[in-house]
């Protein structure tokens, strides 16, 4: 830990960065985001296996960006978010100082996007075994069973939009669901409004989701929203050969036309 504190303190004092996003001890047994601007705050930094929150979303937060050059303690999901955001022109190369913590306490510093890409090529970026199992269960269901499963889950939704707010890829200034004239999707948190919102969100994340699981973790009503977007990862890979968050200059599969694109999904 003292390594991390020393490193961040040095980065701040030599003005490499103005603010470092890491983790601190939170309420009960939780950890939470910490925004380090001075040595005193740096002393609160912690890092262990419980630091699973994807902090990359904060890189786009207006109030955080205002501090100037940012540094971040990125886990694998955050590294992928950074590359995906780069491919969508939201972060420029060299704009963010990125640090990755190994399990043994040592650090990897990334000088540019290419070094992140190289690192991810040899890193496990897949979804967890228990999530894989849930997806297999969903895929084994009949259409009707799956429909009932999701309707039952969406019944709990209160449209607090924690899923959207927690998602590093949901950065639109004006989300479709916030437009009420006309209402592209119903604003109300009733059966139809909940269903339309979650399907719309899943479609907008197809081929962009970096499987960090923040949407599901954030949900106060415990809806496994991550499964919706995770289910779209394989089809996008099979049809377009694309995986989100692996290349900083990737062309987004669903908005790019190639003459050799498969068209077998067109009925």
């Amino acid at each position: 830990m003292s390594e991390l504190i020393k490193k961040v303190t040095a980065l701040l004092s030599d003005k490499t960065i103005n603010l470092f996003i890491g983790y601190e001890k939170g309420s009960a047994d939780r950890v939470r985001a910490l925004f380090v601007r001075n040595e005193e705050q740096a002393n609160k930094l912690v890092y262990d296996a419980s630091c699973t929150q994807n902090l990359a979303g904060y890189l786009l937060k207006h109030e955080v960006k205002r501090f100037g050059k940012l540094g971040i303690l990125a886990n694998v999901a955050a590294l992928r978010s950074i590359l995906q955001l780069a491919s969508e022109f939201q972060i420029k190369d060299g704009e963010v100082y990125v640090l990755f913590a190994n399990r043994d306490g040592s650090f990897v510093e990334f000088t540019d996007f290419h070094s992140i890409e190289a690192f991810l090529e040899t890193t496990d970026t897949g979804i967890k075994a228990e999530e894989q199992e849930m997806i297999a269960r969903l895929e084994a269901m009949s259409n009707n069973e799956r429909w009932l499963f999701w309707n039952k889950e969406f019944e709990k939704c209160i449209k607090c939009y924690a899923c959207r707010a927690a998602c590093p890829m949901c950065y639109c200034h004006r989300c479709t669901t916030d437009v009420n004239q006309p209402q592209w999707i119903p604003v109300a948190s009733h059966e139809r409004g909940n269903l339309d919102y979650h399907l719309m969100r899943a479609m907008h994340l197809a081929g962009r989701c970096v499987n960090c699981g923040e949407c599901a973790t954030a949900c106060p009503m415990d809806i496994p929203l991550n499964l919706l977007t995770y289910q779209l990862i394989n089809p996008i890979k099979e049809i377009f050969g694309a995986t989100a968050g692996m290349k900083s200059d990737a062309m987004y599969a669903l908005s790019t036309y190639k003459p050799d694109d498969k068209e077998n999904f067109i009925i």
Binding site: A33, E63, C160, A162, R164, A166, A218
Partner: peptide, 14 residues
């Protein structure tokens, strides 16, 4: 106090 707040409505709705 609010740097980590992500601006959702979970607090208000519960």
């Amino acid at each position: 106090q609010s740097l980590r707040c992500i601006g959702c409505g979970a607090c208000a709705f519960v």
